[in-house]
Simulated scan of single mutants.
Amino acid sequence: MSDSASRPATTTTTSLMPTLAVCAVVLGVAAGAIGHLTRGFELWTFEDLRRDQVSRGELRAVPTSLVNADGASMKAFGTAPRGGSTPRPAVYVVDFIYTNCVSVCQTLGAEFYRVQEALRREGRGDVRLLSVSIDPVRDTVPALRAYAALHRADGQRWTISAPTQIEALQKLTGALGVIAIPDGLGGYVHNGAIHVIDSSGVVLGIHEYDEWETALRQARGRWPSPLPLPQAGEGERPSEAQVARGGGDSQ
């Protein structure tokens, strides 16, 4: 083969070298970034990353202004209650809801009622249940009050609330990695789960919706209760048939 025949191939290869070098650098940087974000390629889902942050003590709720079902203003995480008349809880058990949800949020309400009753029997004031709306525009005080009444929330142990401003909600959900996406049907798809958060805002644990017993045990921490956890069905609202037969609550 003549020199003139081999020259174009050599020239083409030479001209591609800078491009290949840049591609190699970009791929290297991308691989490094992915490796860092996935903790050495071990964590691949967003929830995995959130829970890894919890294990490292890196996930923290920001102080948030809320309005509760009574219309009163309050601040959660890192700030003592206004006026100091209410003891500051040591731990919050937190879920994210919207009141017109007909599925998971209602199930969470029933589970939180059972946790509330367990805390009531123990007479504990260091653990507070906190439900935070992800739809503060529609979840006005009357809507919060209706949700609280439906699930028999005791305001001394369980606060039904909404952020006072959209910006406050965005800061809180952004800090916790809670995602709420409109589903196009007037509701949301979200990854709230149940969070156990100390009063300073440090997230101690994230639990699935049906793991309320585990969340309660963690919230009780080193002060385990001698009382058993409420069993399935305990404390649930009686049906109309039960009430007619006299089988409802005797309290």
Rank of each mutant, 00 (worst) to 15 (best):
S4A: 14
R7V: 04
T10Q: 15
T13K: 15
L16E: 08
A21T: 11
C23F: 11
L27K: 09
G28L: 13
I34R: 13
I34T: 11
T38F: 01
G40Y: 07
E42M: 11
F46K: 15
D48S: 10
L49R: 13
R51C: 08
D52N: 10
D52T: 01
R56F: 08
G57I: 01
E58K: 13
R60Y: 11
S65A: 14
S73K: 14
K75N: 06
A76G: 00
R82D: 15
G83P: 07
P87I: 09
R88N: 12
Y92M: 04
V94W: 04
Y98F: 00
T99M: 02
E111F: 08
V115H: 15
L119E: 10
R121A: 04
R124H: 05
R128C: 11
L130G: 01
D135S: 09
D135C: 01
V137K: 11
D139L: 13
D139T: 07
D139G: 00
D139I: 03
D139S: 03
T140A: 12
V141A: 05
V141W: 01
P142R: 12
R152K: 15
G155V: 04
Q156D: 13
W158T: 00
T159M: 11
I160S: 01
I160T: 03
T164S: 08
I166E: 14
E167N: 14
L176F: 01
I179Y: 07
I181D: 15
D183N: 07
D183T: 05
G184R: 08
D198L: 04
L204Y: 09
I206L: 03
A219T: 00
S225P: 07
L229D: 07
G233V: 10
R237M: 14
Q242G: 07
A244C: 03
R245V: 03
G248K: 14
Q251M: 13
Q251W: 15
